[in-house]
Design a binder for these strands. Structure first.
Length: 538
DNA sequence: CTGGGGACGGGGCCC
DNA sequence: GGGGCCCCGTCCCCA
């Protein structure tokens, strides 16, 4: 009987335990579900915020570009000069498979053998017609071949980030039409050649009611290097001289889409009805940048390139540098203040020289490449468009306003070595790494690190240099000049820093110690080699 | 042959 | 624009 009671008792206990266990499981599941829902909600909100910030940045930079473009258009209207052929390279196309499209942002720098401008394939230039007709060639094809043999389009679409993908995929098929309301949208995958006639002002639409803009961007035909290095950057590039009449022609195309005012960042519906603001490259046939022009994306700093081009327009008016801005997509957000809402997607600022080694190598191996255009997509970051000239344009004001934000601090901090001086003195940012410099000239020089442009060539050898000082220093190799001597042994050197290095021989100074074995070296490179060989470390 | 070390040239940046 | 400085890599010599 007792055993029977025990069995009943245990059975009841087991039942209770089961019930409790089930309840606990249910409670856990409920908690997990709740947390999961909350987590997903947070993710969604964060994504929305990200999109909002991106679009705000786009809006800001679009405004800058438009303001600048308007100024250009006014100048053009005043000049009343005949226009040249304008290539609006939308860079939708790239010869996929050419170059490394999966190896990161360097991939685009791979020189291409075909799809490149060749000397025997000049671009027809409607020059000096005396009319205001502008031949605008919109290259929208995803197939570079459709762009003609002379058009080289490279892109790294295969490795683009989701944002970029979204922009591309959701943007309205861009139409390079003067009046998009009267012309049907053309599929992006097709090539189209649209001739835009009329005065530049006719092309440049009013921005007051514009929400979707197809901005025809172009190569800002500049290039200080052209002057200093005609043998490399001259006719050989494309087989045709720079179009003397080529001018800047930002073309804004309106779309009939309406504004999706979303100043607060909500309603960021990107599912296909994003108003698009597309920038197309207007390539000057005489200054096509081989292997460098590539599709860009606003969300990844291509606006930076555009604004840099704008900047070049002002500051580099005489220096002329090729700037390529590709088609981008942006949704103008109603009355949202671009300044207030500006979000500068500053890069990490540490993308420099060696990050572009492949690029530079490609340039070195392809001396005919004109290297004025900016590199696109070096890193997965969003550089801000901040290389503005010292002009008094609204863009400049806007730029300062942007930098007045917290991003200014970031810009300085990420300026990579901007250790001294205030921000104002370093407000000229590299379009590639956002590093700040105190003057446009310094930016230009610095950007040669990224572009590989070496305007100064040695007459004694084939060496090329980015700075005059480098050439001057190098030429001592040929002349044998050694103006510096060691005060200890009278040994002579061509460079003073080598004297300083040499002095360590006499002083016995070995400031670099191996952290593994304590062995000391006079130079860091010795230590590095030592550690590599002995300790298998960097 | 190998490693250490000096010399030296290119490159980048700050001032 | 140029000097100074530093970093890096390479070449070469020598133990």
């Amino acid at each position: 009987m007792a055993n029977c009671n025990d069995m009943v008792f245990h059975t009841q206990i087991a039942s209770i335990m089961e019930v409790l266990a089930n309840a606990a499981v249910a409670e856990i599941c409920k908690l997990v579900d709740d947390d999961y829902a909350v987590f997903r909600l947070e993710i969604t909100q964060s994504q929305k915020e990200n999109r909002t910030l991106r679009r705000k940045l786009q809006l800001l930079e679009l405004k800058m570009a438009r303001e600048r473009a308007e100024g250009t258009m006014r100048e053009r209207a005043l000049a009343s000069r005949p226009s040249s052929v304008k290539f609006l390279d939308r860079h939708r196309g790239m010869a996929r498979g050419e170059g490394s499209l999966t190896g990161g942002h360097r991939s685009f720098v791979k020189p291409m053998k075909h799809n490149s401008w060749r000397d025997d394939q000049p671009i027809t230039v409607d020059e000096g017609s005396g009319t205001s007709t502008q031949h605008v060639i919109m290259i929208e094809s995803a197939d570079a071949e459709t762009a003609g043999p002379g058009v080289k389009m490279e892109r790294s679409e295969g490795e683009e980030d989701p944002r970029h993908s979204r922009d591309i995929q959701t943007e309205t098929p861009s139409v390079a039409m003067e009046d998009p309301t009267t012309a049907p949208a053309q599929p992006r995958t097709r090539s189209s050649i649209t001739e835009v006639s009329g005065t530049p002002n006719a092309v440049l639409k009013s921005e007051t009611d514009s929400n979707t803009l197809t901005v025809t961007k172009r190569l800002l035909h500049t290039g200080s290097d052209h002057r200093s290095d005609p043998e490399r950057l001259g006719l050989g590039t494309l087989g045709c001289p720079p179009a003397p009449g080529s001018e800047y022609l930002p073309v804004f195309h309106q779309s009939q889409r309406t504004v999706n005012s979303c100043g607060d960042g909500d309603a960021l519906d990107t599912s296909g009805d994003d108003p698009s603001c597309s920038y197309s490259t207007e390539m000057d046939p005489g200054n096509i940048s081989l292997g460098l022009e590539t599709q860009t994306d606003l969300s990844r700093g291509d606006w930076n390139q555009y604004s840099s081009g704008v900047y070049s327009e002002g500051y580099l008016d005489k220096k002329r540098e090729v700037i390529i801005i590709d088609e981008v997509t942006v949704k103008v957000e109603g009355d949202a203040s671009p300044t207030r809402n500006a979000e500068s997607h500053l890069g990490d600022g540490h993308s420099q020289g060696r990050d572009f080694l492949d690029y530079r190598e490609s340039l070195e191996t392809n001396p005919t490449v004109v290297t004025h255009s900016p590199i696109h997509k070096f890193r997965d970051r969003d550089p801000v468009s901040t290389s503005m000239g010292p002009s008094d344009s609204p863009s400049h004001v806007l730029f300062d306003q942007v930098l007045n934000s917290n991003d200014r601090t970031r810009a300085q901090a990420q300026g990579g070595g901007a250790t001294s001086g205030n921000v104002k003195e370093k407000r000229f940012l590299c379009m590639f790494c956002n590093k700040g410099f105190s003057s446009p000239q310094k930016v230009e020089i610095h950007q040669r690190v990224h572009t590989g442009v070496k305007p100064f060539s040695c007459t004694q050898c084939q060496m090329r240099f980015a700075q005059a000082r480098d050439l001057k220093r190098h030429q001592r190799v040929h002349t044998g000049e050694k103006p510096y001597s060691c005060p200890q042994c009278e040994k002579r050197f061509s460079r003073q820093d080598h004297v300083k290095m040499h002095l360590k021989v006499h002083t016995g100074e070995r400031p670099f110690a191996c952290t593994h074995c304590g062995k000391r070296f006079s130079e860091r490179s010795y230590l590095r080699i030592h550690q590599q060989k002995k300790h298998f470390t960097l």
